[in-house]
């Protein structure tokens, strides 16, 4: 066969294949987008599955959307711990997002520190309590890892957690997502010591000595474990100024109460 017929064959084939694939990609795009956002939302809900009282993986798409519409609010913080207004959000994301709900926080985590936005999700439980969920992102052994940490209404104790990863080894690093016995260790651990200073968690081998601040490592997943520790120390630190401001509010209201009580006496 001559060259011209080879080229003709190649061209026709390429055009047909490209056309069909382009059609499929654009046709299925809306479904892909819904799936992706539901998957991310389920990740967030996993961190409050205890408070929600439901198995998150068994929720339908509609139920996930409903919970997000009715029980979850999201605010964006900057790394100094200030809540960012909608106008600032659109200028910081170059108009990509108009409110905190549309911000792609995974993308934000890759920006330089000062320009970054962090999400703070607030989950309104059925019993009326507010649980705040923080988002952290770091590196495991092979690829990215990320997690959601839920705080008790006192802002000091962990109430729930969920981790996920892009490509950790099944049976080893992937246990951070799959092994409930491991990640549920985080529940009840403290992020602040008695003085009220930020003290993140350590992942230790060979037994936990300070049960409030340490978590037992996964054997065989040393680097993923270190990645989780680093991610928590660095990621949760960004929320520290905001949480501190909550502490001082609490303390102020406490002292006001006391003064009122004193005057009554």
């Amino acid at each position: 066969m001559g060259n011209s017929s080879v080229i003709k064959f190649t061209l026709i084939m390429t055009v047909i294949v490209a056309f069909v694939l382009a059609l499929l990609v654009s046709g299925l795009k809306p479904i892909h987008n819904v799936n992706e956002s539901v998957y991310n939302k389920k990740g967030i809900l996993s961190a409050v599955s205890e408070q929600l009282g439901k198995d998150v993986n068994a929720l339908s798409n509609q139920e996930v959307q409903d919970i997000f519409a009715n029980q979850i609010t999201v605010q964006a913080l900057n790394t100094e711990g200030k809540i960012v207004s909608d106008d600032e959000i659109s200028s910081m994301t170059n108009g990509l997002a108009k409110t905190a709900a549309d911000v792609d926080f995974a993308l934000e985590a890759k920006k330089p520190e000062g320009e970054r936005l962090l999400p703070l999700y607030t989950f309104k439980a059925k019993d009326g309590k507010d649980y705040n969920i923080m988002y952290v992102r770091g590196k495991g052994l092979w690829d990215e890892i990320w997690g959601y940490i839920t705080l008790q209404p006192d802002w000091k104790t962990i109430a729930g957690e969920a981790f996920d990863h892009k490509g950790e080894t099944p049976g080893l690093g992937a246990e951070i997502k799959d092994n409930k016995a491991w990640f549920s260790q985080f529940t009840g651990r403290k992020l602040y010591n008695e003085k009220g200073d930020f003290q993140s968690l350590e992942i230790v081998k060979g037994g936990v000595k300070q049960p409030d601040y340490q978590v037992d490592a996964i054997s065989g997943a040393t680097i993923t474990g270190k990645g989780v520790q680093e991610m928590l120390q660095r990621g949760l630190k960004y929320y520290d100024p905001y949480i501190k401001s909550k502490f001082s509010n609490q303390m102020e209201s406490d002292t006001v109460h006391q003064m009122m009580n004193d005057t009554i006496k």
């Binding site: 069909v20 694939l21 499929l24 299925l28 479904i31 892909h32 799936n35 998957y39």
Partner: peptide, 15 residues
């Protein structure tokens, strides 16, 4: 081509 088609459908119907 076929693998891409399979992947696109899988992503849409069993994410």
């Amino acid at each position: 081509f076929l693998v891409t088609v399979v992947e696109l459908f899988l992503k849409a119907y069993n994410y």
